[in-house]
Nucleic acid binder design. Sequence first.
DNA 1: TGTACATCAGTGAACGCGCGTTCACTGATGTAC
DNA 2: TGTACATCAGTGAACGCGCGTTCACTGATGTAC
Lengths: 220, 220
Amino acid sequence: MTLGTEQNIPFELLEKTRPQQQRAIQTYERILESAAEILSEGGVEKVSTNVIAERAGITVPALYRYFPNKYAVLYTLGARLMDRQNEVMVSWFQQYESDHDPFKPIHHMYELFRDTLAVTREQTAGFTILKSMRVLPVLQEPRLQSHYAMTDWICDKIAQPLGEDIPEDMKVRIRLIMELGTSAMEMAVDDPKMDEDTALREAGKMVEVYWMDYLASLSI
Amino acid sequence: MTLGTEQNIPFELLEKTRPQQQRAIQTYERILESAAEILSEGGVEKVSTNVIAERAGITVPALYRYFPNKYAVLYTLGARLMDRQNEVMVSWFQQYESDHDPFKPIHHMYELFRDTLAVTREQTAGFTILKSMRVLPVLQEPRLQSHYAMTDWICDKIAQPLGEDIPEDMKVRIRLIMELGTSAMEMAVDDPKMDEDTALREAGKMVEVYWMDYLASLSI
DNA sequence: TGTACATCAGTGAACGCGCGTTCACTGATGTAC
DNA sequence: TGTACATCAGTGAACGCGCGTTCACTGATGTAC
């Protein structure tokens, strides 16, 4: 929602009543927590309104007060998580931003991946939430929108000091880099044989040399 | 199954009776086709034994004759697809294999990605099958095993002419490269804004410069 | 070439269960005077 | 400070439906003599 993710949400995912009183906010949060726990224990197929409600210690109609269906619950979890990832990216960029070298952050991809992974892990079933979004038709679009927003933000930031329009192929490259980051993090987490830190460092390296090669080709 | 994927299949995924007569083989194949069609139309959540059977024009117990549950159906689809991807990789490698330069194939990653994408697309719901495997707990392990097998095969092929043991960090790099390829192909297919060929070419480029940088660092 | 038999392939009907969703309702919290 | 009322939060009970799975069975195909 930070970078404008909220714009085109299909109506099936829109929340119904917003919780107002303290008690309601707690209920609302417990619904989200419960859904995440179920997701982490049994995967997306075990998530149902019945099971969420039972675990949250409420009855099913109470859930329907705030969410129109289970996808709205998953969407809310996903949107929050992607927002946090956005924030990580923004503060990472600002940390390594430099007047002299607009591409300085590219030498610090490892730090971005590391921090993004950390914030994803803070959320129960964080990676499962993201993978579920990729596989559930209604949630694919919101996921894409968030990726677009992130890519555009970075492009703007880079283009600003350059004082030019962003070449379209730069956008493609940044999008690809983000996708690589995502899959490297997933691999680091899902593959027990893979050393996590090594995976992220190598992914960072890969992005760096790729970008350097691109810059070299530009100044021909 | 080409590269030894079949070894550690959890018993829940093992097929029951093998179809023997012509008629039975047709039924078996229709079950798989139907499952793929449902997958492509409504995603993994719409796949059920009831719906598969109805679409295949048989009754549910007929399905249970060959498969213990719906995951076995999805597993069979996934295993077949990954086998075909393996084959593509093997013949790609052989095509660009060179006595003079053991790393010649790395300059032709685009061709690998292109052909792998093509063979995946030949299978109805090909990418959805792969994404489903990532998200369904029972199917995660078989997926990983297949990736291991592919990585090991490539490593052996590269190590052979070098006449040495494969350094562990080379394995990590190859694994990462495969993961990047996978996600680049998925992005190329799922993101309507992304030009498919460009995405694959860039991903190929990324792998190439990454590997060249690695080789340069080795000869220090 | 015909028939009896064995094996393979698929059916009809039924089961209990959890699913999503809605209804009219009771109970809790906040507020106006 | 108390009470009457409005709004917010959550309940109990019920619904129809599709799910996975199994049973005893009929029908189709292959084979031995």
